[in-house]
Every structure is written in C-alpha cells, then in structure tokens.
Design a binder for these strands. Structure first.
Lengths: 167, 167
DNA sequence: TATTGTTATACTCTATAACTATA
DNA sequence: TATAGTTATAGAGTATAACAATA
C-alpha cells in the first residue's frame, strides 16, 4: 500500500498541485483513499449481504457468476480478489447452500461453476433490495463522476497489471 | 458492497453511457472496482511492508501518525479503517517494538499516541525504499489522472459519509 | 514435468458483546 | 449516565507450503 504519495521531502516541481501538506499527507495516499472510499460505500450495502448470511467474498463470487458464463476457480480468484484456499471453502459453502453448481469441463483439473437458479434468484433479490442505497450514492455523487471514477479505477488496475513485475 | 451498478433490469434512460452489458456487469461495480484497484496497486508495495515485519493495518497506523500530530485511538480507527479491538492489539505491538509511544492527554480515557523517533525513521525508510514503485505507477497512469482519482475518491467518501444513515 | 486445485496450518483481522475506567 | 478503550471470543480471510490429480 502506502507509498503512493509524494515522498517526505518536498514534492518535486513536476508533480502538479495537490502537494501534500503536513495535515493532508495521509489523505493523498492512493491505497488508503481506495480503502476508505470502499469502506464508506460498502458500509451501506453490508446489511443486505448480512441479511442473507453471505460474507462479502461470497457475494463477490455470486456477483462475478451473475454475468452469465460459468467460470473456473482461477478466474474467480483473480476477479474476486480471493486466494485459492479461501475460494475452495467459499465454493463449498455456496454449493452446499445450493447457490452454485459445478459444471463439467473438458479439462478435469478445472473447477468450473455457475449460478444455480436459486443463486440467480438471490442475486436478483439482493440487487433489488439494495437498489435504493445504490441510487442514493449514485445521485449524491453524480452519474458523470461515478462513470468517470469507474473508468479511472479500471484503467489504473489495467495499467498497473501490465507494469513489469516488481523486482 | 455490491449493488453499486445498475440493476439487473435495463438501465434507466437517464443513466448515461457505460450501461453494463452481460459481460462487463461485474466491472461496473464500484466496490469491486475499488477493491481490485487497491489490490493491483498494493501488491507492488506489500513487499516493503513485509520486509519490515509490518502488517498493512500496522503500516496504515504509522502512516496516519506520520502526519505529525498525536492521534487518539478513535481517530486512528476511523482514518485507518480498523476496528477498536484490532487497534488495541496493533498499538500494543507497535509500542512494544518502540515504533510508537503514548502521549498523556487531559482526558485520561483517551489513548493518545505519536510516532517515536524510531517509528519516524522506519516510516521515512519505507517511503524511500518504495519510491521507485510509487513513481512507476504514478508515471504510467499519469500525474493528472492520479490527482483526479484521489480527489474523486476523497469526495466520494465525504459525500457518502454525510448521507442519512441507512434506514 | 507443468498446471489446477485442495488440504494443512498458523496468523491476523473482523465483528459483537461484555467489561473497565474516566468524564 | 455517557464515552473511550480493552478484553473475550468466535469466525472468516490471508498466506505459505505441501499434496493430489490431471494434462
């Protein structure tokens, strides 16, 4: 995390505006800003997930599968930011609840899963139940800014993933 | 998390562009985008924290204190997105390592802490060591976009925090 | 032999409630 | 009586390594 702000020494001249001062240095940390923005928005949705006895990682898995096509464990790990051992447990729990079901795959090593009808229903219900909260944030922040923010976030991720591996 | 995309039904007409399709729906979830952007950037910094045997929450605490002024536990909890019981453990661990020290406070209930000289040194060293990685992301993404993203993230958080409490 | 997941294990954080000390 | 933290405790995720099955 962390060092995504200017160094402690005065900001280099070519780094425009927003130069951190003693009192807002912390606010200019990218990873902290990402964490706090996520916390403040997610807090308003967590109750809908809690009501259905889902953990947030479990919900991300349902959400990723709700796009339609079956996915394998590796893809789910990457998209949902979940480590393989955690995903194994999560897929077992979701499967036992009948929310997901396994799909055969030509490559028998792959664990392919898809949403069951029950899982799709739970997904739709949760999205519907939380729509008011989503809308509230969306309207307060502004649709254009929201679209811009999403684009910037996805672009940042894509760019960062293509950078050469850390030493 | 979660429902920060359009509902499953077709996007309302007043929600411009970026309407989620079957294949990118997941990508348009704000909380997921925040998580993934954080993961991809933090991954490049985690080694610097690991090398110093700090957890990410511990590092956030040092970072928050590096702004200079002593902070109480409640403020640290909020700024670092850490629950009180976790912070208690973290402050104990940092204190035992001599990275932070307690500061007296008029209100004896408050647990006020500040960075020790050793803590400040570790902070400076970590920021210096990771500067190359920070710069790499900063340059690849672009200084203007980075500043814009930070502003949007902080604004989103502030707006969300001022919304009426969830039902 | 390389790849995909699972199992094992230790540690940390999350989350809630109950408790202590101070105001 | 309200507030600020700590302690207690259960549960889930993080992370690494070792293992199994398949390609």
């Amino acid at each position: 995390m962390v060092a995504l702000t200017a160094p402690t020494s005065p900001a280099a001249p070519e780094e425009p505006s927003q130069a951190p001062t003693a009192t807002n240095y912390y606010e200019r940390s990218l990873t902290v800003a990402l964490l706090r923005a996520r916390e403040s928005t997610m807090r308003r949705f967590k109750k809908y997930v809690d009501e259905r006895d889902l953990s947030l990682p479990q919900w991300r898995v349902l959400r990723a599968l709700a796009d339609g096509e079956p996915l394998d464990a590796g893809t789910l790990c990457e998209r949902c930011v979940i480590l393989p051992p955690s995903l194994t447990r999560i897929l077992r729990a979701l499967g036992e609840r009948g929310l997901t079901r396994q799909v055969e795959c030509a490559d028998a090593r792959r664990h392919m899963v898809t949403l069951s009808e029950k899982g799709q229903t739970m997904f739709d219900e949760l999205v519907g139940a939380s729509e008011h909260s989503r809308r509230e944030i969306y309207d307060a922040f502004g649709p254009e800014k929201m679209a811009l923010l999403l684009d910037l976030l996805n672009e940042l991720r894509e760019i960062t993933e293509t950078l050469p591996d850390h030493d």
